[in-house]
Write a protein that binds this DNA or RNA. Structure first.
Lengths: 137, 137
DNA sequence: GTATCTGCAAACGATTTGCAATCCC
DNA sequence: GGGATTGCAAATCGTTTGCAGATAC
Protein backbone atom coordinates (compact mmCIF):
# COMPACT_ATOMS: atom_id res chain seq x y z
CA UNK A 1 0.00 0.00 0.00
CA UNK A 2 1.43 3.37 -0.99
CA UNK A 3 1.73 6.14 1.56
CA UNK A 4 -0.81 8.04 -0.52
CA UNK A 5 -3.54 5.48 -0.22
CA UNK A 6 -2.49 4.68 3.35
CA UNK A 7 -3.17 8.30 4.26
CA UNK A 8 -6.46 8.40 2.45
CA UNK A 9 -7.55 5.25 4.22
CA UNK A 10 -7.21 6.97 7.59
CA UNK A 11 -8.67 10.28 6.48
CA UNK A 12 -5.49 12.33 6.22
CA UNK A 13 -4.83 14.50 3.20
CA UNK A 14 -1.72 13.60 1.26
CA UNK A 15 0.61 16.51 1.93
CA UNK A 16 4.30 16.98 1.43
CA UNK A 17 5.19 17.08 5.14
CA UNK A 18 3.31 13.85 5.78
CA UNK A 19 4.86 12.08 2.83
CA UNK A 20 8.31 13.21 3.89
CA UNK A 21 7.94 12.21 7.53
CA UNK A 22 6.68 8.79 6.52
CA UNK A 23 9.48 8.43 4.02
CA UNK A 24 12.08 9.21 6.65
CA UNK A 25 10.57 6.73 9.09
CA UNK A 26 10.63 4.12 6.35
CA UNK A 27 14.03 4.79 4.87
CA UNK A 28 16.38 6.33 7.38
CA UNK A 29 18.65 3.67 8.83
CA UNK A 30 17.14 3.82 12.30
CA UNK A 31 13.67 2.45 12.93
CA UNK A 32 13.34 4.27 16.24
CA UNK A 33 13.45 8.04 15.97
CA UNK A 34 12.57 11.00 18.16
CA UNK A 35 10.68 13.94 16.68
CA UNK A 36 13.97 15.86 16.76
CA UNK A 37 15.69 13.07 14.82
CA UNK A 38 13.03 13.23 12.14
CA UNK A 39 13.23 17.02 12.07
CA UNK A 40 17.01 17.07 11.68
CA UNK A 41 16.94 14.42 9.00
CA UNK A 42 14.38 16.53 7.21
CA UNK A 43 16.69 19.53 7.29
CA UNK A 44 19.56 17.33 6.07
CA UNK A 45 17.45 16.47 3.08
CA UNK A 46 16.93 20.19 2.52
CA UNK A 47 13.23 19.96 3.19
CA UNK A 48 11.44 22.89 4.78
CA UNK A 49 9.43 21.89 7.80
CA UNK A 50 8.64 23.12 11.29
CA UNK A 51 9.35 21.01 14.34
CA UNK A 52 5.78 21.62 15.44
CA UNK A 53 4.56 20.06 12.24
CA UNK A 54 6.72 17.00 12.83
CA UNK A 55 5.11 16.54 16.21
CA UNK A 56 1.65 17.09 14.78
CA UNK A 57 2.19 14.65 11.96
CA UNK A 58 3.66 12.00 14.22
CA UNK A 59 0.70 12.32 16.56
CA UNK A 60 -1.70 11.98 13.68
CA UNK A 61 0.15 8.92 12.49
CA UNK A 62 0.02 7.45 15.95
CA UNK A 63 -3.71 8.01 16.25
CA UNK A 64 -4.21 6.56 12.81
CA UNK A 65 -2.28 3.49 13.87
CA UNK A 66 0.51 4.04 11.38
CA UNK A 67 3.26 4.58 13.90
CA UNK A 68 3.89 3.58 17.48
CA UNK A 69 5.22 5.80 20.25
CA UNK A 70 7.64 4.42 22.82
CA UNK A 71 8.75 6.08 26.01
CA UNK A 72 12.12 4.72 26.92
CA UNK A 73 14.02 6.21 29.84
CA UNK A 74 15.59 8.88 27.68
CA UNK A 75 13.17 11.71 28.31
CA UNK A 76 11.83 11.95 24.80
CA UNK A 77 9.43 9.74 22.92
CA UNK A 78 10.65 7.61 20.05
CA UNK A 79 8.49 6.73 17.09
CA UNK A 80 8.62 3.74 14.79
CA UNK A 81 6.54 2.49 11.95
CA UNK A 82 3.93 0.16 13.31
CA UNK A 83 4.45 -3.33 12.07
CA UNK A 84 1.63 -5.83 12.05
CA UNK A 85 3.41 -7.82 14.72
CA UNK A 86 3.79 -6.65 18.30
CA UNK A 87 7.26 -6.64 19.81
CA UNK A 88 9.20 -5.36 22.78
CA UNK A 89 12.58 -3.67 23.01
CA UNK A 90 16.16 -4.08 24.13
CA UNK A 91 17.76 -0.67 24.59
CA UNK A 92 21.50 -0.09 24.85
CA UNK A 93 22.24 2.42 27.59
CA UNK A 94 25.54 3.42 26.02
CA UNK A 95 25.06 3.79 22.29
CA UNK A 96 21.28 3.97 22.30
CA UNK A 97 20.76 1.23 19.77
CA UNK A 98 17.35 -0.41 19.97
CA UNK A 99 16.67 -4.04 19.11
CA UNK A 100 13.28 -5.59 18.86
CA UNK A 101 12.20 -8.97 20.10
CA UNK A 102 9.08 -10.99 20.54
CA UNK A 103 8.78 -13.74 23.08
CA UNK A 104 5.55 -15.75 23.12
CA UNK A 105 6.12 -17.15 26.57
CA UNK A 106 6.54 -13.68 28.09
CA UNK A 107 3.37 -12.56 26.33
CA UNK A 108 1.44 -15.54 27.58
CA UNK A 109 2.71 -15.13 31.09
CA UNK A 110 1.56 -11.52 31.16
CA UNK A 111 -1.93 -12.66 30.34
CA UNK A 112 -1.85 -14.97 33.31
CA UNK A 113 -0.53 -12.28 35.62
CA UNK A 114 -3.23 -9.87 34.55
CA UNK A 115 -5.96 -12.43 34.90
CA UNK A 116 -4.83 -13.31 38.38
CA UNK A 117 -4.95 -9.64 39.35
CA UNK A 118 -8.37 -9.19 37.77
CA UNK A 119 -7.00 -6.79 35.16
CA UNK A 120 -8.29 -6.54 31.64
CA UNK A 121 -5.18 -5.95 29.52
CA UNK A 122 -5.14 -3.07 27.05
CA UNK A 123 -1.46 -3.08 26.27
CA UNK A 124 1.95 -3.33 27.76
CA UNK A 125 5.43 -1.99 27.50
CA UNK A 126 8.51 -4.05 28.19
CA UNK A 127 11.93 -2.52 27.76
CA UNK A 128 15.10 -4.28 28.74
CA UNK A 129 17.97 -1.88 29.39
CA UNK A 130 21.58 -2.94 29.16
CA UNK A 131 24.65 -2.88 26.99
CA UNK A 132 24.70 -4.23 23.48
CA UNK A 133 27.49 -6.51 22.30
CA UNK A 134 29.49 -3.55 20.98
CA UNK A 135 29.27 -1.60 24.22
CA UNK A 136 30.50 -4.07 26.82
CA UNK A 137 33.99 -3.67 28.21
CA UNK B 1 17.13 0.96 59.97
CA UNK B 2 15.93 4.45 60.82
CA UNK B 3 15.69 7.09 58.14
CA UNK B 4 18.41 8.95 60.01
CA UNK B 5 20.97 6.22 59.74
CA UNK B 6 19.75 5.32 56.26
CA UNK B 7 20.59 8.84 55.16
CA UNK B 8 23.95 8.85 56.84
CA UNK B 9 24.81 5.55 55.18
CA UNK B 10 24.44 7.14 51.75
CA UNK B 11 26.10 10.41 52.65
CA UNK B 12 23.06 12.65 52.93
CA UNK B 13 22.64 14.99 55.85
CA UNK B 14 19.56 14.38 57.92
CA UNK B 15 17.37 17.36 57.22
CA UNK B 16 13.73 18.04 57.85
CA UNK B 17 12.70 18.03 54.18
CA UNK B 18 14.39 14.70 53.59
CA UNK B 19 12.86 13.13 56.69
CA UNK B 20 9.43 14.39 55.71
CA UNK B 21 9.60 13.22 52.11
CA UNK B 22 10.72 9.77 53.23
CA UNK B 23 8.00 9.67 55.85
CA UNK B 24 5.35 10.47 53.27
CA UNK B 25 6.62 7.83 50.90
CA UNK B 26 6.52 5.33 53.75
CA UNK B 27 3.22 6.24 55.31
CA UNK B 28 0.87 7.79 52.82
CA UNK B 29 -1.60 5.23 51.57
CA UNK B 30 -0.24 5.13 48.05
CA UNK B 31 3.12 3.53 47.35
CA UNK B 32 3.43 5.21 43.94
CA UNK B 33 3.54 8.99 44.06
CA UNK B 34 4.50 11.82 41.74
CA UNK B 35 6.58 14.71 43.01
CA UNK B 36 3.41 16.79 42.97
CA UNK B 37 1.62 14.18 45.09
CA UNK B 38 4.38 14.30 47.66
CA UNK B 39 4.38 18.10 47.58
CA UNK B 40 0.63 18.36 48.10
CA UNK B 41 0.67 15.83 50.90
CA UNK B 42 3.41 17.88 52.48
CA UNK B 43 1.25 20.99 52.36
CA UNK B 44 -1.66 19.00 53.79
CA UNK B 45 0.51 18.17 56.75
CA UNK B 46 1.25 21.86 57.11
CA UNK B 47 4.90 21.43 56.32
CA UNK B 48 6.79 24.17 54.53
CA UNK B 49 8.62 22.93 51.47
CA UNK B 50 9.34 23.98 47.91
CA UNK B 51 8.38 21.79 44.98
CA UNK B 52 11.93 22.16 43.70
CA UNK B 53 13.20 20.67 46.92
CA UNK B 54 10.85 17.71 46.59
CA UNK B 55 12.31 17.01 43.15
CA UNK B 56 15.84 17.44 44.41
CA UNK B 57 15.30 15.16 47.37
CA UNK B 58 13.60 12.49 45.28
CA UNK B 59 16.48 12.54 42.83
CA UNK B 60 18.98 12.20 45.62
CA UNK B 61 17.01 9.30 47.04
CA UNK B 62 16.92 7.69 43.65
CA UNK B 63 20.66 8.01 43.17
CA UNK B 64 21.21 6.69 46.65
CA UNK B 65 19.08 3.68 45.79
CA UNK B 66 16.43 4.49 48.38
CA UNK B 67 13.61 5.07 45.94
CA UNK B 68 12.79 3.95 42.43
CA UNK B 69 11.49 6.12 39.62
CA UNK B 70 8.92 4.77 37.19
CA UNK B 71 7.81 6.37 33.98
CA UNK B 72 4.36 5.13 33.19
CA UNK B 73 2.49 6.59 30.26
CA UNK B 74 1.10 9.42 32.34
CA UNK B 75 3.57 12.15 31.57
CA UNK B 76 5.04 12.45 35.04
CA UNK B 77 7.37 10.18 36.92
CA UNK B 78 6.15 8.25 39.92
CA UNK B 79 8.38 7.37 42.83
CA UNK B 80 8.18 4.49 45.27
CA UNK B 81 10.30 3.25 48.11
CA UNK B 82 12.71 0.71 46.76
CA UNK B 83 12.05 -2.67 48.22
CA UNK B 84 14.70 -5.34 48.31
CA UNK B 85 12.71 -7.36 45.84
CA UNK B 86 12.28 -6.33 42.24
CA UNK B 87 8.80 -6.19 40.79
CA UNK B 88 6.89 -4.95 37.78
CA UNK B 89 3.60 -3.07 37.50
CA UNK B 90 0.00 -3.35 36.43
CA UNK B 91 -1.42 0.12 35.82
CA UNK B 92 -5.12 0.89 35.56
CA UNK B 93 -5.76 3.31 32.71
CA UNK B 94 -8.98 4.56 34.25
CA UNK B 95 -8.46 5.07 37.97
CA UNK B 96 -4.67 5.06 37.92
CA UNK B 97 -4.26 2.40 40.57
CA UNK B 98 -0.94 0.58 40.42
CA UNK B 99 -0.45 -3.03 41.45
CA UNK B 100 2.87 -4.75 41.75
CA UNK B 101 3.73 -8.24 40.65
CA UNK B 102 6.72 -10.47 40.30
CA UNK B 103 6.84 -13.34 37.88
CA UNK B 104 9.94 -15.54 37.93
CA UNK B 105 9.29 -17.05 34.55
CA UNK B 106 9.07 -13.64 32.87
CA UNK B 107 12.28 -12.62 34.59
CA UNK B 108 14.04 -15.77 33.48
CA UNK B 109 12.79 -15.43 29.95
CA UNK B 110 14.14 -11.92 29.73
CA UNK B 111 17.58 -13.20 30.62
CA UNK B 112 17.35 -15.64 27.75
CA UNK B 113 16.20 -12.99 25.32
CA UNK B 114 19.03 -10.67 26.31
CA UNK B 115 21.61 -13.40 26.09
CA UNK B 116 20.46 -14.36 22.63
CA UNK B 117 20.78 -10.74 21.50
CA UNK B 118 24.22 -10.41 23.10
CA UNK B 119 22.96 -7.83 25.60
CA UNK B 120 24.26 -7.49 29.12
CA UNK B 121 21.18 -6.65 31.18
CA UNK B 122 21.28 -3.67 33.51
CA UNK B 123 17.60 -3.45 34.26
CA UNK B 124 14.18 -3.57 32.75
CA UNK B 125 10.79 -2.04 32.97
CA UNK B 126 7.60 -3.93 32.34
CA UNK B 127 4.27 -2.19 32.70
CA UNK B 128 1.01 -3.81 31.81
CA UNK B 129 -1.73 -1.30 31.07
CA UNK B 130 -5.38 -2.14 31.37
CA UNK B 131 -8.42 -1.82 33.56
CA UNK B 132 -8.52 -3.01 37.14
CA UNK B 133 -11.42 -5.08 38.42
CA UNK B 134 -13.26 -1.96 39.62
CA UNK B 135 -12.96 -0.17 36.29
CA UNK B 136 -14.34 -2.68 33.80
CA UNK B 137 -17.81 -2.14 32.42
C1' DG C 1 -13.60 27.42 -3.24
C1' DT C 2 -13.06 25.82 1.05
C1' DA C 3 -11.91 22.81 4.57
C1' DT C 4 -7.61 21.07 5.91
C1' DC C 5 -3.01 21.83 6.76
C1' DT C 6 1.47 24.26 7.75
C1' DG C 7 4.88 27.49 9.83
C1' DC C 8 5.91 30.26 13.32
C1' DA C 9 6.09 31.78 17.71
C1' DA C 10 4.06 31.81 21.95
C1' DA C 11 2.25 28.74 25.65
C1' DC C 12 2.58 24.67 28.28
C1' DG C 13 3.61 21.16 32.04
C1' DA C 14 7.18 18.71 34.19
C1' DT C 15 11.54 19.17 35.90
C1' DT C 16 16.06 21.45 36.80
C1' DT C 17 19.04 25.09 38.24
C1' DG C 18 21.39 29.57 40.13
C1' DC C 19 21.79 32.05 43.99
C1' DA C 20 21.39 34.15 48.40
C1' DA C 21 19.74 32.88 52.84
C1' DT C 22 19.59 29.03 56.12
C1' DC C 23 20.66 24.83 58.41
C1' DC C 24 23.27 20.82 60.26
C1' DC C 25 27.35 18.84 62.49
C1' DG D 1 32.39 28.09 61.04
C1' DG D 2 31.74 26.35 56.85
C1' DG D 3 30.15 23.22 53.64
C1' DA D 4 25.68 21.19 52.57
C1' DT D 5 20.95 22.26 51.90
C1' DT D 6 16.83 24.98 51.06
C1' DG D 7 13.36 28.21 48.97
C1' DC D 8 12.29 30.84 45.44
C1' DA D 9 12.03 32.28 40.93
C1' DA D 10 13.88 32.02 36.56
C1' DA D 11 15.46 28.76 33.10
C1' DT D 12 15.15 24.58 30.45
C1' DC D 13 13.33 20.66 27.93
C1' DG D 14 10.09 18.23 25.27
C1' DT D 15 5.82 18.99 23.42
C1' DT D 16 1.39 21.34 22.20
C1' DT D 17 -1.39 25.05 20.45
C1' DG D 18 -3.44 29.50 18.28
C1' DC D 19 -3.58 31.82 14.36
C1' DA D 20 -2.81 33.81 9.79
C1' DG D 21 -1.41 32.33 5.45
C1' DA D 22 -0.76 28.34 2.19
C1' DT D 23 -2.27 23.90 0.12
C1' DA D 24 -4.86 19.78 -1.47
C1' DC D 25 -8.70 18.16 -3.87
Amino acid sequence: MSDRSQFRAVGLKTTLPRLKVMEILENSGERHMTAEDVYKEMLNLKEEIGLGTVYRVLNQFEQAGLVERNNFESGSSVFEIKSDSHHDHLVCMKCGVVEEFFDPSIEAQQEKVAKMAGFQIAGHSLSIYGFCSDCQE
